[in-house]
Simulated scan of single mutants.
Amino acid sequence: MTSDRTARRQSALTESLERLSGAHPAIAAVLREVGPPEPRILEPGFASLLRIMVGQQVSTASAAAIWARLVEASGDTVSGFNSLDDEALGRVGFSRAKMRYGRALADSVLDGTLDPEGLEALPGEEVSSRLMALPGIGRWTAEIYRMFALGDPDVFPIGDLALREGVRMALDLPERPDLDVAERLTEAWKPERSAAALLLWRLYRRRRGIAVLGADSPPIVDNSAQAQR
């Protein structure tokens, strides 16, 4: 991860938050309460996509522990992952389903079906479509990759329960909005919904004291993990 890239992401996030808070009093109030979030940055590539898949439907702490064991087993590259049999992946903490998904991802990178780094040049919805064509990658995974790895400024992973609870908190709603309502409510924050999402994850973390992806997961995958696919 280059310092230039980190600086660009930080500058873009700061500018987006300034515009959002200027246009939306609720966002301004949250920003005053919790302060600005940090950008969440992953290096585009196989390792980051696999890392996000590891985080599906498990706690932040569990995902971090599984990922650390996978890195220790050299399974964070395509060749390294494919060298691990089911028994080894089970010891790392992979379910049978995630073993299948990880292998499908590795195979798609190997055969050229998917170029995770090259997705950066495509429109956001096309990125999501290409990723969601793979087994085990749904909307949430695709959108987290777009936000953290590709730096897409207009992503709001509406399926994330913590984010929808953050919407409830920020807008002082009586109950957490469902998917359709939350989608409508967050339309107003286009085209800078990624900044709003990071801020609301931070709000949820501050009020609930519970670790969440957008506020607590380690933000950077070392470039060395991407050197060999």
Score class of each variant (00 low, 15 high):
residue 167 V to R: 01
residue 8 R to A: 15
residue 184 R to D: 10
residue 180 D to I: 10
residue 189 W to D: 02
residue 156 F to V: 00
residue 149 A to V: 12
residue 164 R to P: 01
residue 29 A to P: 01
residue 41 I to F: 13
residue 1 M to G: 13
residue 202 R to T: 01
residue 117 E to A: 14
residue 4 D to P: 01
residue 95 S to A: 03
residue 204 Y to N: 00
residue 29 A to G: 10
residue 33 E to D: 13
residue 92 V to M: 01
residue 141 T to R: 09
residue 41 I to N: 12
residue 183 E to I: 06
residue 198 L to P: 00
residue 115 D to H: 07
residue 217 S to W: 15
residue 24 H to R: 04
residue 53 M to I: 12
residue 146 R to Q: 15
residue 207 R to N: 06
residue 198 L to V: 03
residue 30 V to P: 03
residue 45 G to E: 13
residue 150 L to D: 08
residue 152 D to G: 03
residue 60 T to G: 12
residue 142 A to Y: 02
residue 194 S to F: 09
residue 188 A to G: 09
residue 3 S to Q: 14
residue 123 P to I: 08
residue 111 D to I: 06
residue 158 I to W: 05
residue 48 S to K: 05
residue 208 R to K: 13
residue 177 P to S: 01
residue 33 E to H: 11
residue 152 D to T: 08
residue 190 K to R: 15
residue 222 D to V: 11
residue 91 R to V: 09
residue 201 W to I: 04
residue 184 R to C: 00
residue 122 L to K: 09
residue 2 T to P: 02
residue 64 A to R: 15
residue 68 A to R: 14
residue 165 E to G: 01
residue 179 L to K: 15
residue 186 T to D: 04
residue 96 R to W: 02
residue 56 Q to R: 10
residue 27 I to H: 00
residue 4 D to T: 11
residue 68 A to H: 09
residue 229 R to L: 13
residue 58 V to G: 09
residue 58 V to T: 10
residue 121 A to L: 13
residue 61 A to E: 14
residue 226 Q to G: 05
residue 159 G to H: 03
residue 177 P to M: 02
residue 182 A to M: 02
residue 89 L to E: 00
residue 2 T to Y: 07
